[in-house]
Amino acid sequence: MSVTKRLEILDLIPELRQQLNLSQKQFAVRLGVSFKTVNRWENGHTVPSRIAIRLIE
């Protein structure tokens, strides 16, 4: 994954979550992932898998 694409995804997740007025925990439940996973995405420690990206879309 290119750096640009990674940055776009990392910016998109908290923005989308805030637009939906969801906590990280609520967002995680909707996607079927753990709170820790969403937290790591937003902090830039990991990026979502292709499957998770499709769910986010």
Rank of each mutant, 00 (worst) to 15 (best):
R17Q: 08
S49I: 01
V29P: 05
D11E: 15
N21G: 00
V47W: 06
E57W: 05
N21Y: 02
Q24L: 12
W41L: 07
L55D: 11
N43H: 10
E15L: 09
F35I: 05
S49K: 00
L31M: 00
I13H: 04
E15F: 03
Q26W: 08
L20M: 11
S49M: 00
P48F: 00
K25D: 01
F27R: 09
N21P: 06
E15Y: 09
E42H: 09
N43A: 11
I56K: 02
N39H: 13
R6D: 14
V47K: 05
L7R: 14
N43F: 02
K36I: 13
I53T: 04
R54N: 08
V3D: 13
K25M: 12
R40V: 01
Q26K: 14
R17S: 01
L55N: 14
A52S: 01
I53Y: 04
I51F: 07
K5C: 02
E57I: 01
I13G: 10
E42Q: 04
L10T: 11
L10M: 07
E8R: 14
L22R: 02
W41A: 06
W41V: 02
K25S: 13
K36P: 13
N43V: 13
L16E: 10
K36S: 15
T4F: 15
L10P: 08
Q26M: 12
